[in-house]
Every structure is written in structure tokens, then in C-alpha cells.
Nucleic acid binder design. Sequence first.
DNA 1: CAGCTGCGTGCAATCGATTTCTGGCCGAAA
DNA 2: TTTCGGCCAGAAATCGATTGCACGCAGCTG
Lengths: 317, 317
Amino acid sequence: MSAATVSRVLNGARTVDPAMVARVLTAVRELGYRPNAVARNLRRSRTTLWAVIISDIGNPFFTATVRGIEDVAQQAGYSVVLCNSDEDPAKEETYVAAALSEQMAGVIIASSGSAKAAKSLLDSPVPVVAIDRQLPRGEVDTVVVDNEAGARTATRHLLDAGYRRIACVTGPEGVSTADLRLRGYTAALSAQQPPGEPLIARTDFREQGGYDAMASLLSSPERPDAVFVANNLMTVGALRCLADHEVRVPGEMGVVGFDEIPWADLVRPSLTTVAQPTYELGRMAARLLVDRIATPAGRPATVVLPAELRARQSSAR
Amino acid sequence: MSAATVSRVLNGARTVDPAMVARVLTAVRELGYRPNAVARNLRRSRTTLWAVIISDIGNPFFTATVRGIEDVAQQAGYSVVLCNSDEDPAKEETYVAAALSEQMAGVIIASSGSAKAAKSLLDSPVPVVAIDRQLPRGEVDTVVVDNEAGARTATRHLLDAGYRRIACVTGPEGVSTADLRLRGYTAALSAQQPPGEPLIARTDFREQGGYDAMASLLSSPERPDAVFVANNLMTVGALRCLADHEVRVPGEMGVVGFDEIPWADLVRPSLTTVAQPTYELGRMAARLLVDRIATPAGRPATVVLPAELRARQSSAR
DNA sequence: CAGCTGCGTGCAATCGATTTCTGGCCGAAA
DNA sequence: TTTCGGCCAGAAATCGATTGCACGCAGCTG
């Protein structure tokens, strides 16, 4: 029989004789035949793969988000391939280029800030959803949490607890989460009477960065009595630094971290965090992508999810 | 000019006139031309993608391993796409099928135990490396740690610390890491004079499983005074259970967990673990895969890396 | 019984890049 | 001047599956 018939059987065309269908299926089973997806993709000029490009695979925030994406993707018939840019714009560009060359059906990206990668995506026809962070100059579907409000709440919480000299450790300039969380922090300070004076340390979004930033805050002339750390990995670094310097938390230093940490309630003192609805964020992003694939045109949506303060011991003076 | 010429330029053939090369390159830049990798892969019948199939993306062990894989892959000119089976054999089978259909250049897999997925891989010509866990009935390159020795050391460490009634929480039967770690535990017990009596709880390799297993151990008539937990996520669950039941660690219950945890030294009491060389494990697996792609035939290698006890407070009576 | 409809199958074009083959042109050697 | 290589560019085949089109056959209608 012809390849055409086999193809029709395997793709569920109903114009095939049932006897023929049976013959094809047994032959497929016996031969262990597996259609070549590369050829299929070429002919159909579409694929069933999504590229999910995240900036740190070691960050529980992203892994939880990916779970949400995966669950929706599976249901919609897509497979998710995960790409870890490790906050490295060059790696991000490599992965974006691969995703475009491979004609992926869609891309979900937490940008590490590469304008070049963003431009490639925007210039291409591939549907894109940005998560966690705004895509540089990108008019695309976006799912983020309300970073500014979350940071404001966290900072106000420290003020309410009686801390007076509150520092902020945040991420790289130009990364939207870093900038917005900083803005929320400063907003909370200046809402005070009298306005609090900001004390800011910028670093990368990684553990070592948090450690170093905390160390420099500790040795600064205006040593703070509390710190708001704008991401979970930096918070771990800060905590480690405080432990190394034998600074008592929360007695000598109140701590609130952005992003929930799976073991926040297991450490002593337990850690106050600003929790994000990670799984829901992933689901939402995946749903937007499904919609965008169905309807390529149309105004991009931006979904803002709430962040929620989880007050624990590290911020209780 | 013809497509053939463009192809030659882009693939670095040296039989092209320099003037022509320049024309092609400027045209490529101006048009934003990007070769269709799907078509290229079809024609060449090979790709530059590796599928890395892991069983839990939320487990720091795997994410650290992936980092090692990625670094070697990038250097060798491959891109890594990560697939998360979430310990679900059905998902694993889906991803294996996708990897084979997509003609991936190689597969690195931490099996969740699906015999079907293993068979598909073994029947196919695609180069495979198993990590962390043996592939069911699979004669393939494998990188593991010395699970039995690690478990034996951990158990002996508890015995040496003076604990007398030591339980083991391990993973599903048939998953090699679960079985070997259990074997190391029983070996250490029976090496005692008089031999210790094993007390075993089997569950899945997840946090909730660890919690439940610990809870049942606590209420057992032969309540243990120490526990060896065979994986990091289950250890977290066990710790949470102990905290909920207000069991003092290490006073009332000594704890050692297999797998390092990034914050093992931040919790109080800090956690004794059996650390694995995760990054190195990933690098090794990737190197084996590169070799296997170059030399498809030949006897599969098995690399066993050492695990190392990190004694901290949770096991100090 | 001619003609029409519809079903099931095969033929052949197609996707876009790579690669082998072919041929034109030029220079060098006889 | 002729012939032979060598070099370079284009023509065409190729990868494997999908899909529009055509054809043959059966059943039905007028």
C-alpha cells in the first residue's frame, strides 16, 4: 500500500477502509514504525513544541511556574521543552535562536534582559508570552505579579514592626522585577512621616550577590536594622551572611524576602516572605499562549496577579 | 543567485567567491533570514538537540545535574531541552516518544521506572545515557553515585552517634536508588553486634511521602530514635512532620538525609546529609553522551561517583 | 444501459535546506 | 591552438511525511 494511506490512517482520516486501517496498524506495531516528526513538521510547517526560556533553573519560583505551564500544555497537546538561560543574555539569545529555527509553536520567556533576544522574538511571527518580567520594549502577552504592591506591603510590614532603618537589596537595573520591587520599597518609605531614607544595594539575582550585598550593608556606616530582599536566592545569601556574622534575626536584623521558599517555615527563625501564585502564573501564561496561537492578531493582554505577604518570625521584632 | 550558493556560504564551504560571500551575508542580514532548522534536520537526518528527561524538576539534585550537562553540551555544540516527567511513567513515555520522533541527537534520562519508555529507547538507535538511576533492563552508559556505600555510611554514622533504633524511609521498589540505599542501610545494621533490626517505610520520592512515612513511624509501636531518609524531598517532608509533632531533633530523633539540600546548613538544627557530586555527575553524563554519539557501537560504560557524608547537627545526639 | 455520485486509493507535488552532479569558464600545459 | 584540470555556480535529487488531485470501481438514478 502507499505511504499516503498509512499517513491517513495515522492521522485519523475517516476515508479509509476499516480492513486497511487494521492492516496498517498491525504493520506499524510489528515494525515499530514511528513517524518522523521532523518531516511532518516540515510539511505542515508547524510543530507541537513550546520553548519555555527561564533565567534560573535553580530557582524554585521558576520550577513551580513551569509545572503550571506544563499541565496546561499537555492538555492542549503541546510538549514543553525547557531552556535555562542562567541569567546569561548570550545563552538566552542562543536559545531564542534555536526556538525560532526549530519553528517552535510558541515561546514563554522570563527575560534575562537581552534586547537582542527580545527583538528576535518580536520580529518573528512566533507567539510569545512574557512571564515574571517584562520583555524589553515588548508588546506581547505578559503575566506578572504586582511587584510594586508586594514590595510596598513587605516594607510597610517592617515599618509596622518597629524597624526604622530599612535597606533594600534588589536585582540588576533594567530587569523589571528588580526595578518595580525597588520602587515599591521606596514608595513605602516615603509614605512615612517623616519619610524614611532609602538604603539600596543592587546586585544580581543570585545567592552570592545577596551574600555580598548583605555584607556591604553590615559594614556600612548607616547599618540598617532590617532588610527587604527582592528575590529568594538573594535572600538565602543574605541569611547565610547574617549567620556567618552572627547577627541575630530578627533581633538585630529584620528580614523579609520576595518570593516564597519551600522551606521558609523550616528555618529558625522562620522566614517572612512575599509569596507569588507561581503555579497559577504558569497556568495563566500557558492559557494566554494557547489563545495567541489560535488568534495571532489582536491586542496583547497583561495579567497582573497579586502577591501575598506571609508574615513569620524573621520580621517580628 | 541560487539557494545552493546561500547554503554553501552559511555552512562555511570554501568553494565560494569572496564577493559572493559578502553579497550573501549582507542579504541575510538585511532580510533577517534565518535557516529553517526543521528542513535542515530532515535533509541531514540529524539534529543538535539533546533531550534530558528528569523525574522531578523541583528537586535541586536534578537541577544541579542539569547545569553540568548544559555546560558540556553547549561546548560540544548541542542545545539541551529539558523534559520533566514528574515521576509519572506516562509523562515519561510521552517525552521519550517525542524525543525519538523529533530525531534528537541524544537522550539523558533519570528513569521514573517506565519499562515501556526504556524499551522504546533501547530499541531505537538514539544514543542514551542513564543518570542517577539504572534504566530498567538497560545496557546503556550510566552515571550514578555509590548509593549503597553512601547509605551505609549514613547509617553507621547514626549508630556511631549512639542511636539504637534506626528507621529508613526509602522510595518506590524497582527504582534503583531506592533499593540500593535501602540495601546500604540494612547492611550497616546487620554489620552491628548484635545486628540492628531494620524498620522500613516505603513511599514515593516526594515531600508528602516523606511526611506520611515519618508520621507512621512516629506512631509505630517500635518508635525509632533516628531515621535515615533516602532522598532530599522526603527529608523535607520528614522534618516538617517532626516539627508539627514537636519532636526534638536531634534529641528525640536523629536525622540524616540522602542528597544535599542547598539550605541544609541554614535550618536549625542544621541537617546532616549525604552529598552527591551533582554537577560533576551531569558533566560526566554529557561527556559519555558526546562519546557515544561519536562511537555508537561499543560496550556501555558505568561510572560510579562517590557520595560524601556531611555531618551536621541533626545527627549529633 | 448510460451517466452520475461517492468512496477509497494511489500518484505526485510540496515543505526548505543540503549535497551531488553537471556544465561553463579560465588558465596552464602540450 | 587544443586539451585538460580546476574552480565556481546552478540544476536537480534528496530527506519523509502530508495532502490536493485524479482515477477506478460500485451503486444508484433516469
